[in-house]
């Protein structure tokens, strides 16, 4: 049997399968969840654009059989902003990693959230820079061992859902790759709404993170997600820090606010009338 017989193969560039991600990598589950959400909603594939940055998950733009853009490091939100403003009819989805969106691209993220432009961001948080060799990053938990912190990480990590909600995102959720069903429901909800939306997917990196932190396989990392996660919808994102024995998951923010592209086009219409 080949991949062509898979019921969702029309969303994939089947000639690139199997993908390069490691055995048990959470990125595959995010790809799986995303195409299932597209299939459930029957979204017109000519109306959706996926932008991804650099990192393991950045390859997702190549694997999806729709208009997609693999941009430079840290800039997927900047490119997505351009696409959305040039053609507001398009649904623009950014799928990228924690190192790409919050280390080098941190500024783009907070300002896109502040403007409330209708970009849908899915962030795969694997706690390290997986593609370049497992260095510590802005989401590495304290005391975690990575290749650049062999005696344990001494930095405090970003709490991504708190950061997004504080910056003004109108939809903020966090799931792990273990909560696939809820993740799909959340992606569907995100695709149907307006405004800046952010989903953090806590994802396993068995090769570069788990191996150094007493979780030798994808299965052991999944068991950690299963054991530690607590579903608490609309709880305070400030208290939703990820620790080794507690991962608060759920929807944190769901609000309505005028979006940037609506205000911009209204502004353009108004000023054009005044001039003539």
């Amino acid at each position: 049997m080949s991949i062509a017989e898979h019921p969702l193969s029309k969303y994939l560039r089947t000639e690139l399968m199997p993908h390069i991600w490691c055995s048990g990598c959470g990125n595959g589950i995010i790809l799986n969840a995303f195409i299932r959400a597209l299939d459930d909603l029957q979204i017109d594939l000519n109306k959706i654009v996926v932008v991804s940055g650099i990192g393991c998950i950045g390859r997702i733009a190549g694997y999806l059989k729709l208009d997609s853009f693999h941009t430079t490091h840290g800039r997927p939100i900047a490119v997505a902003t351009g696409i959305k403003l040039a053609n507001p009819q398009l649904e623009v989805v950014v799928i990228s990693g924690d190192g790409d969106l919050f280390a080098i691209g941190g500024n783009h993220f907070i300002h896109a959230a502040r403007r409330n432009i209708s970009i849908k961001v899915i962030c795969a948080n694997n706690f390290n820079y997986g593609m370049t060799g497992g260095q510590s990053g802005p989401t590495t938990p304290p005391k975690a061992v990575t290749t650049t912190t062999p005696y344990g990480n001494i930095e405090y990590p970003f709490n991504l859902v708190h950061l997004a909600s504080a910056a003004g995102a109108t939809y903020v959720a966090r799931w792990t790759t273990f909560h696939v069903g809820r993740l799909i429901a959340s992606i569907k909800k995100m695709l149907l709404r307006r405004g800046f939306s952010f989903i953090e997917v806590v994802s396993q990196c068995p090769e570069m993170y788990g191996r150094y932190n007493k979780m030798r396989s994808a299965l052991e990392m999944m068991e950690w997600f299963k054991r530690a996660s607590v579903v608490a919808d609309f709880s305070d994102p400030a208290r939703a820090e990820i620790t080794s024995d507690r991962i608060v998951v759920g929807e944190f923010v769901d609000a309505e606010k005028p979006t940037y592209e609506e205000l911009l086009y209204a502004n353009i219409a108004q000023t054009t009338i005044k001039r003539t």
Partner: peptide
């Protein structure tokens, strides 16, 4: 099939 990272099962 939901949890398979390689889309290898349906």
């Amino acid at each position: 099939s939901l949890i398979c990272p390689d889309l290898a099962i349906f």
